[in-house]
Design a protein around this nucleic acid. Structure first.
Lengths: 247, 247
DNA sequence: ATCTGTGTTGCATAGTGTGCAACAGTCGTG
DNA sequence: CACGACTGTTGCACACTATGCAACACAGAT
């Protein structure tokens, strides 16, 4: 590993939190002031940091430019796949990854269970917003304007006795999800198929996706699924960390 | 300057365009394969690059995370100020910088001319969309949904004989702007005050702002302002480059 | 089975990144 | 206004790290 490059990366971490003076950087890295200056000069020449008018160093515009250029490479699905595969192996149920994709939520990935039942959810297809755990785990943490936009004209079609059929009831459900940190689908779309779901966050803490564990009630009822919440929490925290979120 | 850190920055530039193999990186940097591997290993450990399942290296999620964390530091106004100040000195007229700010366009900065006339545009205030050069230079390159959203319910108030007073005429004007690359305000808000404006782009080429040169017609008519277009083009290209755009 | 290209590792050393001393500039205090 | 403290900057000697090399492992093509 390259010590100099590692130090440069640490500089970027520190200045991304807030702009820092050269002496602060020297102290944080435990190096001499002249060493800090040279690291900052090189990073600034590359556009990764910039010297602000007040003499502090902040993140440079080119760093944002690089992230933008590479936007197509950031596929949550790729990064989440090993983690949800492991979760599927551990608990033996169907695992879904869904992502917020513009104004809709789509299934991004799916780990089929080894059991006799196949869930008919399809990767790439939109998620039904009012019944599925993943969509509720995403919507619960979106701002009101986004939720309003996504639910404008939405039809709360009844599928089973537990289907939510009004915006008021849906909002109440989302409030409960925010409170406890996870969502459920209590046979709301198909009788006897339940799931639990938790959100995936990006670097800024915004919810960009969700992962769920789904099972036929005869194999694992909601209590059994809720017992898996610690594993689900570990998986979504791992995925969030992998895409840049820090607790 | 640190050669190692400079090389790391070059690696980031190259892999942001598209994912690359380790050997490609070695060739691009003109270093040994083992050197390229160690640079990539250090960047990957820091999350700035990541090794994809196919063995190539792309930009890492943490880089996007750093840019997100630092989003509040990216103030187009700060970066544009020296360039528009120089443009103002060179041509002796009033210079405006406007930015796309959510669903509106606002004046972000203004360089007053040394002449007797003061434009009453105010930094921080919204721009009148159908008459000003900067707003048209921004709107011309927004997607239809954005333009529709911004112009929903908009009142095309007539101020002078040249004011545009319909959405159809406005759209035709925007089409002309796209074709020639710059916008004008031909006394559309106040008689005898004209301007030319050009767009500012971000790293992905999206138009995020515009710069204009405004003058009293008695001092510089539209022909005189159009003669300044090369200087205006150089200024907007400089600002765009400074915020990460590459031709 | 063989060849080629790519990825990886341990190691010696070329050469770079480092800290130091000295200097310059700024700001607060008396 | 002078002084001290702190921060920023530069040239330089050298400590030590980043480098290329050789050797090896592996995958894919022939």
């Amino acid at each position: 590993m390259s010590q100099s490059i590692h130090r440069a990366a640490l500089v970027l971490e520190h200045v991304s939190v807030r702009p820092r003076t050269q002496s602060e950087i020297a102290a944080l890295l435990d190096v001499h002031r002249s060493t800090a200056l040279r690291i900052l000069q090189t990073l600034t020449e590359a556009g990764l940091t910039r010297r602000r008018p007040d003499g502090t160093y902040g993140i440079g515009y080119r760093l944002a430019g690089l992230a933008s250029l590479a936007a197509e490479q950031f596929d949550l699905r790729d990064i989440a796949r090993p983690t949800i595969a492991e979760l599927g192996r551990e608990c033996g149920h169907t695992i879904h990854l869904a992502v917020l994709d513009g104004a809709q939520i789509v299934y991004a990935d799916k780990i089929e269970s080894a059991g006799p039942v196949r869930m008919h959810s399809q990767v790439g297809q939109p998620v039904r917003l009012h019944t599925s755990g993943v969509s509720k785990a995403i919507l619960a943490w979106q701002d009101t304007a986004t939720v309003d936009r996504m639910l404008a004209g939405y039809e709360y079609e009844r599928f089973t006795d537990t289907t939510i059929t009004s915006r008021e009831a849906f909002d109440a459900d989302l409030a409960g999800i925010r409170e406890r940190g996870w969502a459920v689908d209590d046979g709301e779309f198909e009788p006897f198929i339940d799931c639990v779901a938790m959100p995936v966050r990006d670097a800024r803490g915004s919810v960009i996706g969700a992962v769920s564990i789904t099972a036929l009630r005869a194999l694992a009822d909601l209590d059994a699924l809720e017992a898996l919440l610690p594993r689900l929490a570990a998986a979504t925290e791992r995925i969030s960390t992998d895409v840049g979120w820090r607790p």
